[in-house]
Simulated scan of single mutants.
Amino acid sequence: MTNNSSSAPPPSTHRKVALAGHNIAKRFGHVNALIDANVTVHAGEVVALFGDNGAGKSTFLKTLLGVHQPDEGKIIVDDQEVEMNSIRDAQNLGIDCVHQELALAPDISVVDNMFLGHEEMRHGGLGLLGALSRKDMTEKADAALRELSINLPSLKIAVRDLSGGQRQAVAVARAVMWSRSALLLDEPTAALGARQSEIVGDMMRTVASRGLGVLCVSHDLPRALKFADRVVILWRGETALDAPAAGLTVPDVVSTMVGYKKEEAA
């Protein structure tokens, strides 16, 4: 017979918060862009952030990245409340973002894009910095791409010569290289075809499996529902829904996005 009177503590159910914004409000003059926005992304989780135009998605994303400072509420990174005053602060906390415009330099190689702003230098005589450590950079870039199952014709090829899906993959891999807590994606499949969008979705799952929190802003509702663990919907600056993705349909999401359920409940 099993002894149930053991004094051992129960197993912990705490899930590490990779990134969260709690009760966020942000005003621009007389405009309330955010009123009471709440999003929590746990480590190892993919959260899809939905909302109609003007719901506050972009403002919320920029607040989580330190571009805007909230008028009310708090930001949590790795279970700790933090203050961010710039994108650099977010990056120092291990948060990076893949923007819709990608922010890649088209005329330089894949490796140089992966290390843009993070270049590694070889040490010369007397400990002085010399030329770029291209061998180390290439090996690290190759490892980062392989970890996400990204296959490119060459790491020396200029980014302009890659397909749209390949460019998106490079942007994601670069962000993952420098992220320690959370990865944010802003409309990552907006300009991609069906197959390329599937690849990006698979990459989001792979990134989450590494223990990062992933927050994806998207208008591609069917695909985002497929890859997300949880869905958060903003409605006029407030969180209108926070629910498991598995229990939602596209009509459910659309009705909440346009405010039908909220208005009926009022």
Rank of each mutant, 00 (worst) to 15 (best):
S109N: 04
K140R: 15
R134F: 06
S149M: 10
V159T: 12
Q91E: 11
V110W: 01
R160F: 03
E139I: 00
E147K: 14
S58T: 15
E119P: 03
E72V: 13
V110A: 06
T138E: 04
G94K: 01
I95E: 08
D52C: 02
D112Q: 02
I150K: 10
A55T: 11
K135M: 01
N85E: 03
C97R: 13
G130Y: 00
G164I: 11
A141N: 14
E139Y: 00
L104D: 07
G130M: 00
G94M: 05
G54I: 05
A158S: 13
E147Y: 14
I87V: 12
R88T: 06
D52P: 06
S154T: 10
L129K: 08
L64M: 11
G56E: 08
L162E: 03
L145Y: 03
G124R: 05
N92G: 08
L116D: 01
A55F: 03
D52E: 05
S154F: 02
G51A: 09
A103E: 00
A143W: 07
M121R: 05
K140T: 14
M114A: 13
G165T: 06
L116H: 02
R146T: 08
L93G: 11
A158W: 02
L126V: 10
L61E: 13
T138S: 11
G125E: 12
H118A: 07
Q100P: 04
V111A: 03
R122E: 03
D71I: 09
E83G: 07
